[in-house]
Design a binder for these strands. Structure first.
Lengths: 143, 143
DNA sequence: AGAAACCCTAAAGTGGCTACAAGGTCAAGC
DNA sequence: GCTTGACCTTGTAGCCACTTTAGGGTTTCT
């Protein structure tokens, strides 16, 4: 399988595949005489796994861990469960942040019912008068 | 006001201020004899505005637009309202994405009730068997 | 034979900072 | 007057997961 075929089979771009190789997520394949990458079925399975994890917004580090567990199939899967729990927690943290954000924005939006001069616009006035607090470092990689 | 005082007054770091200057969000202040930046009250107001917008997860481009409207205070604020509506939409799109994500992850998590061998782990098996679809470019900058 | 479609590497760009390196300035205390 | 430490300056590199661009080589179709 050449890189383009692999890309189509995994629904991603060829550049992404080369990037995963550089990142150490996908093992280097054999090369043809013309120096083209030549992939096996195993590569496709691994790449699909990676793309599935990415579609669940996992980081490369998280995926690297999961791949390492897969390569030790007789080990206990406790750490896999823990990793997923932690990732779900990341998502929940970000969800809470975004809900709060939406409420703030809705409240702000209501401050200007009908268009007027910018200097009297409730939205602008609201943004000016907001208490300026420090952004706290949140414990999620999703946002 | 020196840059450190300004930073404390706006709850941000001095590097962030210099970065905003380079980005064209904050106008260049006068300099002291020792080449120190010397800020006025106006700078503080503008910086607070910027930080408030950032705490609402607006992009620099969105903030640049808002600042331009502020500098034309007699114009109609319709575009301001439109910008906020669009931003709220970004947030709602991302919220929907994340909710779907959480559901997927919870479903996946339930596939492994009690720890076992990695090769039999429902989570790993679920990740392997997932349909691998293309990531669609989502219309939000929050994630 | 020529064109289109594919492949290669390496480097730079994205956004919004943060961190570091290597220096210059200033106020306080001894 | 001299040191200590806190502050200021510029410039550069790093973060993340790609995407884009530049500049070439190979294969396949017509």
């Amino acid at each position: 399988m050449k890189i383009g075929e692999l890309a189509r089979a995994a629904n991603c771009g060829t550049e992404t595949i080369r990037f995963y190789e550089k990142e150490g997520l996908l093992p280097e394949p054999l090369r043809t005489e013309a120096n083209y990458r030549s992939y096996e079925q195993q590569h496709l399975e691994r790449l699909r796994f990676i793309r599935n994890c990415r579609s669940l917004d996992m980081t490369h580090d998280e995926i690297r861990s999961l791949l390492a567990y897969i390569d030790r199939p007789h080990d206990n899967c406790g750490p896999v469960n823990a990793l997923l729990d932690e990732h779900i927690n990341h998502v929940n943290v970000r969800l809470a942040e975004l809900k709060r954000l939406r409420d703030q924005l809705s409240t702000l939006r209501r401050r200007c019912a009908n268009p007027q001069a910018v200097e009297d616009c409730g939205i602008i006035l609201g943004l000016v008068a907001m208490p300026t607090r420090e952004k706290m470092p949140s414990d999620t990689h999703l946002g």
